[in-house]
Amino acid sequence: MASQHVLAEPATAAIFLVATVDDGGVDGVRDLLADLAGLTRAVAFRSPGDRLTCVAGVGARIWDGLYGEPRPAGLHPFQELAGSKHTAIATPGDLLFHLRARRMDLCFELARQIGLRLSGLATVVDEVHAFKYFDQRDVLGFVDGTENPDDEDAVAAVVVGEEDPSFAGSSYVIVQKYVHDMAAWQANSVEEQERVIGRSKVDDIEMPDSIKPKNSHIALNVIEDEDGNELDIVRDNMVFGNIADGSFGTYFIGYAKTPDVIEQMLRNMFIGDPPGNYDRILDFSTVLTGNLFFVPTADFLEAQPDSPSTPDGSLRIGSLK
């Protein structure tokens, strides 16, 4: 089964669209998802060297109405995580479109075409136009994505295998939109910023465990299995901002073969490990959205399974989970 372009090379431009499906819209949405690869090729043909891709994800609420049984083993709604000080909120979202390219105009044109197809079927509830910031840094000034696995390790981290054979080749993705309090952040010395992240700012070297704070971002985002092996995800975070309203942020997007790893990272960040030892970066970063999606293979989307919806195209009652 051909996977979607989850492991596309890092892009210089991206658009993230999150939409909720309107009542009566499931059949049209299923048709759009089946046509998405061809729609992407039609736009990418204008400049094939700029590597336009689009990954589509499907949320738990809409899965049954779109595709019925079987259901992906790890698919469920994003779970709110309330810590002693900070909360990872859950927000509406049935569909994710992750568009990437070396040029924003290609992303924009494909997003426009997707929007036209979604008209009357679904409502875009969040839209972020994002970009590569200098040498893969976030707007806080630190390199983002240093620990991403490469090559076969990346495939092993994000591609579903024998653990759910009906959906081999698929992935899961969690997205969150963070805005940063830049004034508060910049009021800290570089040394204090490095203690918050757990890594040097200029040369991107991780602190030794002996001096790395236990509540640093890196310390709480290293997840290991019962044998002590580190568990990987693939991040493709991007920077966004608005000069007029002074909002600057990071769009977090993490792909994995199971949502468990990312969810554990978020529990460590917001609740703490141990509880109360939350991620210091959250004192400067506020999360505005939270969604979990399943990313079927491209072959699955194009197959257009028979409609499990009611004759008028509305959702089945059982799908509203």
Rank of each mutant, 00 (worst) to 15 (best):
L66P: 09
D279S: 11
D273T: 10
Y133H: 12
F300C: 07
G241K: 03
D144V: 04
Q186V: 00
W185S: 11
A130V: 09
T289R: 12
E152S: 13
V287T: 15
G254M: 12
S3N: 13
V196E: 08
G65L: 06
A60L: 06
I114C: 13
H98E: 10
R51Q: 13
V143D: 08
P259M: 03
G145P: 06
G83C: 06
F78D: 08
T289S: 15
D204K: 05
E302N: 07
Y67S: 06
L17M: 14
F293D: 12
V124M: 07
G161V: 07
T20R: 05
F240L: 08
T258K: 14
S314K: 01
V124T: 15
S171N: 14
V202A: 09
F45S: 15
G25C: 09
F252M: 10
D35M: 00
G161E: 15
L7W: 04
V295S: 02
C54A: 14
Y251S: 05
H180S: 11
F97R: 03
V155P: 02
G68S: 09
D232Q: 12
G141M: 05
S166R: 14
V26D: 04
P165I: 15
Q176D: 13
E302P: 08
I174M: 13
Q193D: 03
R41P: 02
D306A: 15
S189P: 08
L7H: 01
L7Q: 05
M207I: 03
D144I: 01
E302L: 10
T297V: 01
D105E: 12
V190A: 10
H180M: 15
Y178Q: 14
T53C: 00
A122Y: 02
A44H: 05
L106F: 00
E147I: 07
P165H: 14
F131W: 13
A8H: 12
T20G: 08
Q186K: 13
D209T: 04
N291M: 06
F270Q: 02
L266I: 08
G83N: 10
S200V: 09
N268E: 05
K257D: 03
R112E: 09
A56C: 07
G38A: 11
S170A: 15
G28K: 08
V159Q: 14
S171A: 15
L292Q: 13
A8D: 11
T297L: 02
S307M: 14
T91Q: 10
S3E: 06
F300P: 03
N291K: 09
E127S: 12
A184P: 03
T53P: 01
V155L: 15
L75M: 11
E147M: 01
P296D: 10
A130F: 03
E194S: 07
L32I: 04
G246R: 06
L292N: 08
T53Y: 00
C54Q: 02
I271R: 05
E9N: 01
G59P: 09
C54Y: 01
D181V: 15
M1R: 02
A42M: 01
S210G: 02
A187S: 15
S307D: 15
P149Y: 00
P296Q: 07
V6R: 03
D273M: 12
S247N: 12
